[in-house]
Amino acid sequence: MPEMTYREAVAKALTDELASDPDVIFFGEDVAEAGGVFKVTPGLYERFGPDRVRDTPISEQAIIGTALGAAITGLRPVAELMFADFVPVALDQLANQVAKYRYMSGGQFVVPLTVRAAQGGGNGFGTQHSQCAESWLMNFPGIKVVSPSTPVDMYGLLRGAIRENNPVFVLEHKGLYNMKGEVPDDTAPMKLGESKVMREGTDVTVVASQLMMHRSLEAAEQLAREDISCEVIDVRSFVPLDKATILHSLAKTNHLVVVEEAPHQAGWGGDIASLAADEGVYWLAAPVKRVNMGAALIAYSPPLEDEVLPNVGRIMRAVKSVLTDA
């Protein structure tokens, strides 16, 4: 079974979709001749040519607007925004245009558009190159949002996103690009909207994504030595959200911890907590605990960045606290 990195999984998904559908095109800043600033996309330009793999000017509004216009006229574009921190630069095109184009025309268009961006902290990129974008994007019905946490999911979800006849944001975590994992040769494009139970457990449900999901798995491993059994759920798809998998787990464990790489206010963890309150409150034996960045911003200095991002120790303490609150 072939092993590849998360980075290679992005490249393979793009390659396979460009090869299978001539309407797929790919563009962004430095993605073509340079192969991407994260070296995710080398070779695509050489293989698929300058018409289908393009470098753009540093023009995020034009990148997204052009992708939208191409999507509604017969192409299946994949646009790269490089850093997810640039989402707000293109926010009008995303929030007012991409998300609403089908709706406000009364369904005249399908919008088969994929936007990729690299997100997440932990690498010393500082305040404006380290943020996660899920919570921003979730407020715009009309856009789907997926955040793969493993190479196999990266490959399958990106292909699924490209084949989707709706706008999909695929968020790649910078801290995972070098992570290796098995991607079976027959991995098919994956359906969006499904979470995955990454570790089964009985005492506490821990909902997390990407780097925080991996830290939650580590916390679960250490907690197991203390006879605390965590069920770790990888969100994978933020829009649409797989409520059933979360509620099913909550019914079993009666305890919920949400780990977000995001500020607390209006963060996606609030939606998970609200789901538990709305549809799972009688299963809850203790208050829901959210582990996140609070009201702080990401800072450059190593100890400050280490402090703001939830770590294994904080996740473990949160799990223990919901158990002792009961």
Binding site: A67, G69, T73, G74, L75, P77, Q93, Q97, S105
Partner: peptide
């Protein structure tokens, strides 16, 4: 007619996408 737009200027990049489709296809 791909749409009238209520955000000043937003329709320009969208038309570029339609032009890109015409160019590629």
């Amino acid at each position: 007619l791909l749409g009238a737009n209520a955000i000043v200027g937003a329709q320009l990049p969208i038309a570029m996408g339609a032009a890109l489709t015409a160019q590629v296809k």
